[in-house]
Design a protein around this nucleic acid. Structure first.
Lengths: 145, 145
DNA sequence: TTTATGTAGTCAGTATTGCTGACATATATT
DNA sequence: AATATATGTCAGCAATACTGACTACATAAA
């Protein structure tokens, strides 16, 4: 067992539960906006990820969301039909379909974001700049396993 | 628009996407262990939350997981039948059912945790004690909206 | 050029997770 | 005794995700 308090099992365990809770809270905020557009959690995950990674290819989206292409396809086709997301053929590799938010997609994404932002801003205003930067740094390290 | 860099829209937006990604990554790690026990995401959320809040009542679990009692009930009854979670009548308020992990439940919880821990520990070892404490602090502030 | 591989799309069927509404039971409160 | 609260249950439905099999097309390798 480590001598460093912050590496102790109980601390790690607590943080894992806090991450679940923070995710559940943050992603429940936009519920009404999503519902208004007949979208659900799956659409939300897709919009959020494409927004953060414009021009990403389908395979990368599948990898990030950890779902099968069949599961992705249903939701993606709905968003394409609703003109929230657009696809373009890859210029270097013509097999790829690159994903972008449309203007309409950007608008919905902003609407969703503005609700989530409230919670995050409220939290961050009680923190100093360094704490927020560290938070981001740690998040990134968790992702890059 | 704020003068504080860390409160700028792009930073907040990036952090929201990182939280989604960190959650997706962290909660995909225990997949094999859950599958082995014929459990899914719903069971996982339940086990994790009861583990972190032993003796919590059903209503609190519903509130935390943001699902209906009917949705909870199906999964909870499965876990009770499999002797992963136990219920006890509240001593102060006899209507309440207080939830605990059984010995078997603790064991599975540990098994799940040990996989998730790897990722978190790896990340935390690249950070100093203060950064990890800040991370936890910010997470908590996000939750307490 | 032919063949193999990689990217994406599609069809069919199934399991899991979540919802609503209605109703039941036990306990607590007034 | 009447009402409110906490939990459980039944039935039906919708959304999300899975597997397997197959197609179409583009690129890479032989």
């Amino acid at each position: 067992m480590s001598d460093f308090l912050y590496l102790r099992e109980n601390n790690i365990k607590e943080i894992i539960e806090l991450m679940l809770e923070a995710y559940t809270e943050s992603y429940s905020d936009p519920y009404e906006i999503l519902k208004k557009n007949s979208f659900g959690r799956a659409h939300h995950r897709l919009i959020c990820t494409v927004n953060a990674n414009p021009g990403m290819k389908v395979a990368d989206l599948i990898k990030k969301l950890k779902i099968t292409k069949q599961s992705l396809s249903r939701v993606l086709q709905e968003l394409i039909k609703d003109k929230i997301i657009s696809q373009s053929k890859g210029k270097i590799d013509g097999r790829q379909r690159l994903l972008h938010l449309t203007e309409k997609g950007e608008k919905i994404s902003e609407e969703i974001f503005s609700i989530q932002k409230e919670r995050i801003l409220k939290a961050f205003k009680e923190c100093d700049s360094q704490e927020v930067l560290n938070f981001k740094k740690v998040l990134k390290k968790i992702i890059n396993n």
